[in-house]
């Protein structure tokens, strides 16, 4: 039986959103989350477009739900998440959710990913995008990354590159994220596994548009992640 998410649970949940050059896509994501009553820590990762202005505008509308931090230069999604993880500790959250800023995730899935945490079944959740729903090139790149995550980090998951995850504050205090770029997804899974944190996979909806496909794990990114995994394995 599914646990019902109470208002208190929503109040105790903070959503971390790393955003880089998302001026046309970030508003519906942020306002959609705010309308549901969740609070957000948004990290503008040195965007060169008007992302920060759009975020400030959203903050005017939902001042109690939106907390903005901004990198002076672009350093990658991994560092933006690290900043988000550190910033969120100021607000004493109980549950933390990560979601992409480009609108590829459905805001409606936030309740689904925190449900296992609220019920106490698990301490961490990864939102799994069904491989069959992905465009072919993305599907192959993700399958390769799942295989590499299994080889290098010894964890078998259905979607190692998802940007939709959730974890409890206890789990957050146990993990150590050092990745600067897209390696963060695999590193998150490795940390969850290495710290024996009980985790669950929850199937999420993915909205693919030409814009959302322009970012994320393509072949080039997959190759970069592979090199970083090798480096981590060899040099620690």
């Amino acid at each position: 039986m599914e646990t019902i998410i109470s208002k208190k649970d929503i109040h105790n949940t903070y959503v971390i959103i790393p955003a880089y050059n998302e001026e046309t896509r970030v508003r519906p994501v942020v306002e959609g989350i705010a309308k549901k009553g969740f609070k957000m820590v948004i990290v503008n990762d040195g965007s060169t477009d008007n992302t920060l202005d759009v975020l400030k505008d959203c903050q005017k509308k939902y001042p109690k739900n939106i907390f903005i931090y901004s990198h002076i230069i672009n350093r990658g999604v991994g560092l933006a998440m690290q900043t988000g993880f550190e910033a969120v500790l100021k607000y004493n959250p109980k549950f933390i959710v990560n979601i992409d800023a480009d609108g590829q995730h459905s805001v409606a899935d936030i309740e689904n990913v925190i449900e296992p945490l609220v019920s106490g079944r698990s301490e961490a959740v990864i939102g799994v995008r069904p491989l069959k729903d992905m465009p072919k090139s993305r599907n192959i790149a993700n399958s390769i990354m799942n295989f590499l995550t299994k080889i290098f980090y010894n964890v078998d998951v259905s979607d190692s590159q998802t940007g939709f995850r959730a974890l409890t504050i206890d789990a957050l205090n146990q993990i150590q994220i050092n990745a600067q770029g897209y390696l963060i997804s695999s590193e998150f899974i490795r940390e969850i596994n290495d710290n024996s944190i009980p985790f669950e996979e929850v199937t999420i909806q993915t909205i693919y548009t030409p814009e959302t496909q322009s970012k994320g794990t393509n072949y080039k990114v997959a190759f970069k992640i592979f090199i970083q995994m090798m480096k981590h394995k060899l040099f620690g």
């Binding site: 400030k56 005017k60 910033a87």
Partner: peptide
């Protein structure tokens, strides 16, 4: 240098939350 730069960028961001008062 990259690691040092990351530390600086993160610290600057964490110490300068953007609020409506700034606006």
């Amino acid at each position: 240098m990259q690691n040092d730069m990351n530390k600086i960028v993160k610290e600057v961001a964490l110490n300068n939350e953007i609020t409506l008062e700034d606006e």
